[in-house]
Design a protein around this nucleic acid. Sequence first.
DNA 1: AAGCATCAGCAAGACGATGC
DNA 2: GCATCGTCTTGCTGATGCTT
Length: 413
Amino acid sequence: MLLNKPVPLYPPYVDLCDFDFDDYPELDKIFSSNEPWWLEQFNWGKIFLTYIGRNKSAHTYERFRNDVERFLLWSFIEKKKPIDQLRKSDLLEYADFCWQPPVDWIGTSNQERFKITNGYSAANELWFPYKIQAPKSLKADYVIDKKKYRPSQQTLSSMFTAIIVFYNYLMAEDFCIGNPAQIAKKDCRHFIIDSQVKEIKRLTASQWQYVLDTAVAMADENSMFERNLFVIAALKTLFLRISELSERPNWSPTMGHFWQDDDENWWLKVFGKSRKLRDITVPIDFLPFLERYRASRGLLGLPSSNENSILVEKVRGQGGMTSRHLRRLVQSVFDQAHENMRRSEGENKALKLKEASAHWLRHTGASMEIERGRPLKDISEDLGHASMATTDTVYVQSENKKRAESGKRRKVD
DNA sequence: AAGCATCAGCAAGACGATGC
DNA sequence: GCATCGTCTTGCTGATGCTT
């Protein structure tokens, strides 16, 4: 069976662990009817991904699976050469391929790799190795041109990372003798040195005012939106990441995580990125929002220590919520706020509200605090950054501000 | 100090399960 | 019956620690 179009090779991690060709008749056919090195290299990918899935995070598995799969498909179908025989120039060719893949390798929607049909896993016809989508702010009547697909700098760099790590693994296992990807990365012509001034992804003070007013109005009208109001107020005022409000395998946020010290200052304990626990200062202004949301759930006053009710609760069913749905709650407020602001201030001023995502609230809150002159050190701690340098480059950009200031006074004559 | 390798989190569409 | 919510997906962004 000649392979002339890309097919998915690797299932999700749990399914890869007990992978058996009997369950994947199509793959079985492909590998038994092609040159033996196809199967050998499929197996290299398989043991590498198994190792990643076992020792790294689930996300890293998915990220690396994409790229190992694309790379092998390219070597099978396009290059027709085993990966242990590839050299730097071949890898540069692969980078060109990724930069502008053929249109029949590109899809326009998220799709599962495999579908179960008649008890067997079969390739999903709608799945493609590459994907192009319309940006959410331009969703309506947007025509997708697959020829316009270009990976971002991050995507390209992630591609090299995955292939480099893959080759390193193969070298350690004595399958390969060198790492052509490592050398190719330095010569890849698609990388541009980026020292641009980056726009901070935040709302202006007036856009934020619309978001807050809209959320209050929505909650006043229908108590089901009390939850939306609480979430956006918490994300903005306490600089939270969306995940820090979500139920996760090793952490469930509860009301008891709000606590008071000896001087009656309020704090919130959160479990952040890279398994770091931190306490965030809770301003007095925020307490009414907390009380209000609690009241809508029939909880009296402010949280007592060791209170173990869920922090943000589902309206149907029991327990905390995943980040996916919390993001949708934020999005629904943004959509309404955009509509309100567009009507009274015009499309131009409201535009950013269409692009905004939940994470912008963290940026908006921190940026507004910096403008009010709160010490950078304190904000950095509340954000949970390990170093103030991160806070400065992401939120303040003091170097750029100085440069803009000194450049502003140049004369033409 | 800058750059790189590593890897974790976030965004948002698709789709199906679930609770009321 | 249907809105709510979780899971899977790819693409994007942020953070950390090591090397140079």
